[in-house]
Simulated scan of single mutants.
Amino acid sequence: MIKEFKEFISRGNVIDLAVGVIIGSAFTTIVKSLVDYLINPLIGLFIGGIDFSDWVFKIAGATFRVGSFLNAVINFLIIAFVVFILVKVVNKFVSKKNEEPVAAPEVQLLEEIRDLLKENGK
C-alpha cells in the first residue's frame, strides 16, 4: 500500500495540482487586495464615496452584511475574468506551438503531380 501511495504522489498530475492550488491561493490574495483597495474605492467615487462593506441591515437581531456580499461578488467576477484572460492567452500560445504549417492547396496539388511523375519514371 505504501508503494502505491508513493506512485500516486509522484505522478506529475498530483504535483501539478498541488502547485496549482498554492499558486491559486496566492493569486486570490492579490486579487482580493486589488478589489478591496483599488476597485471598491474607485466604484465608491462614482456612487458618492459609499463603501460597500458598510452596507448592512438588521432584522430581529440578525445582521445582513449586503456590502460584504457585494465585495465577494465583485471579487469573484474579477478572478473569473482574469482566469478567462489567462486561459485565452495560454490557449493561443499552445495552439500556435501545436499547429503544423499547412501547405496551400496549390502546393499540395503540385507535390502530388511531382510524386505521380516520379512513379511513372518521368
Rank of each mutant, 00 (worst) to 15 (best):
D115P: 00
F93A: 13
I113Y: 02
E111G: 01
P105R: 01
E111V: 01
S95M: 13
A103K: 14
K88F: 04
Q108Y: 05
K96L: 15
P105Q: 04
Q108I: 10
L110K: 02
Q108T: 09
A104D: 15
V94G: 09
L110Y: 08
K96C: 15
E112F: 08
P101C: 05
V90K: 07
D115T: 11
L117F: 15
N91L: 09
I85C: 10
K92L: 11
L86N: 04
N91Q: 14
L110C: 04
E112H: 08
E111P: 01
D115H: 06
L117D: 09
N91C: 04
E106K: 12
N91D: 14
V89Y: 05
P105I: 01
V87I: 11
E111W: 01
E111K: 03
K97C: 11
D115F: 01
K96D: 15
E100R: 09
A103P: 00
A104Q: 15
N98P: 07
A103Q: 13
L116G: 05
V107D: 02
R114V: 06
K97H: 13
N91K: 14
N91S: 12
P101M: 05
K97W: 13
V102M: 12
S95E: 14
K96G: 11
N91A: 04
I85H: 04
I113T: 06
A103S: 12
V87L: 03
V87C: 01
E100D: 12
P101T: 06
P101F: 06
E100Y: 15
V90H: 14
R114H: 08
L110T: 00
Q108C: 01
F84E: 09
L117P: 01
V107Y: 00
V89D: 00
V83I: 15
I113R: 02
L117A: 14
A104R: 02
L116Y: 06
E100G: 04
R114F: 06
L117Y: 13
L116V: 09
E111I: 00
E106C: 01
E100H: 13
Q108L: 09
P101R: 07
N98H: 10
E100A: 13
P101H: 08
P105L: 00
V90L: 10
V83K: 01
A104C: 06
F84A: 10
K92I: 15
E100C: 11
V90I: 14
K92F: 07
A104W: 03
Q108H: 02
F84M: 04
V102S: 07
S95R: 15
P101E: 04
D115G: 03
V83Q: 02
V90C: 13
L109P: 03
I85W: 05
V107T: 14
V102H: 05
I85Q: 07
P105A: 00
V89C: 06
E99N: 15
R114D: 07
I85S: 12
P101L: 07
K97G: 09
I85G: 05
R114N: 03
E100K: 10
Q108E: 07
N98C: 11
Q108F: 04
E99F: 14
V83M: 04
R114S: 02
K97S: 14
K88H: 13
